[in-house]
Design a protein around this nucleic acid. Sequence first.
DNA 1: ACAAAAGTGTTCGTACTACACCCATGC
DNA 2: GCATGGGTGTAGTACGAACACTTTTGT
Lengths: 239, 239
Amino acid sequence: MVQAKKSFDGFFKSAFTVDNVIFGFDDGKLKVLLIKRNEEPFANYWALPGYFVQQHEDLDAAAQRVLREITGLEQVYLEQIRAFGSPGRHDFGRVITVAYYSLVKVADFELQAASIAQKVAWHNLEGIDTLAFDHEEIVQVALNRLKRRIRTQPVGFELLPPAFTLTDLQHLYEAVWGVSLEKRNFRKKILSMNFLQDLGRSQTGVAHRPAKLYAFDEDRYHTLEEEGLNFELKEGKRK
Amino acid sequence: MVQAKKSFDGFFKSAFTVDNVIFGFDDGKLKVLLIKRNEEPFANYWALPGYFVQQHEDLDAAAQRVLREITGLEQVYLEQIRAFGSPGRHDFGRVITVAYYSLVKVADFELQAASIAQKVAWHNLEGIDTLAFDHEEIVQVALNRLKRRIRTQPVGFELLPPAFTLTDLQHLYEAVWGVSLEKRNFRKKILSMNFLQDLGRSQTGVAHRPAKLYAFDEDRYHTLEEEGLNFELKEGKRK
DNA sequence: ACAAAAGTGTTCGTACTACACCCATGC
DNA sequence: GCATGGGTGTAGTACGAACACTTTTGT
């Protein structure tokens, strides 16, 4: 066995990292959390938070660690996107990265610069230009994944505060898909699925009729799902 | 820079492999191509075809190479699933694998045992029990991906011969989804999308009314897609 | 003539689309 | 009282679901 391993030694010269596309939703816009690197390569470039995976660390755990270091958050939506591994994507040698995306509630934490970063900041998705490594591509792929996921899985709520209005939810879908949706139909569709809990409270301090607040009832959703509900929204065609 | 790299040397001790879930469709059943390993670890186990990625090789290219070695095929549908990387999934050290799946036409090639394999054979998806490494999990994830993909992308045709009948196509969907579909509705839906080309020929030598043969018109599909067609089939509820 | 699969048309209900007006609050 | 977004009902349409019989071939 040790004999067998010997002949494969030549392959054990690579490293891998995880990179995390952390999405947030604030001010009606979809955001991504980026760090300004202070290490080579790509020092002073904006980049996705990520780091090398430890020798005995699970990939998911590594992604979670990166998330925790930057946000302090533990229990958030986290899903692997895929691996990116062009040779030559990293100066130090062969490094493939396993990309993840997570959905967080922006209000839940204060940004904190980690050891790898000089700065941490939310960026609007449109305004993103040159990022370190192949991170622009990763962000694109992450966004496409998110667009599809929120169509058929109730993950949008991960980006909203625990109590939100239907309009908040609609704006979220509009921001992610880049479309505008018809208010009445959107509300009917969402409410007909019956997994939103009317909190019996309303907004306060707004200069117009205050909107009702709702919460996503996860238990109820799972019950309905067992019973054959299939969550699915249409993107519509309007720009 | 060399200085900078030095401190990261500890991370460059890993290897990665690609593993390929090669799907085929034959005899009305969905199949997976497996090899019987002749090397440690897991010698004599059935496994997904896969191998170490070369130091300067692109991931997609590595997956293609594995496919070519076993099937001789080059231009086939190939898509990355994701990375699997529990520590301890490989005896030789830290090895993560990047899994791919491909869709091939069974009739297009003769199976040939590669250097890594004693035997190569198609296996029915149900009959799969113990595989090497975490390959059972990978097959499951691949199957789930395929189930979703064929709902909204015209990839099913990759599994069928260039000329096929509507019943062939229906059986394919039924096999992948594990449901039975209603013939008239299925045909109406498919034909209404207008991207199947009626070849003007029919089956021969069957002991019943011969079925018309169709081909998937890829150019036409792309045109229609630009114009806003959205391909989508429903799984239905019937078992 | 019989077996075996191909092929087809209609009805019904559901769910999406489009659209315009009144309501509650802050200033 | 005015500006601002919250909230609702209805009619038309399109699409999916269900369903049974005739047609063509080989044996």
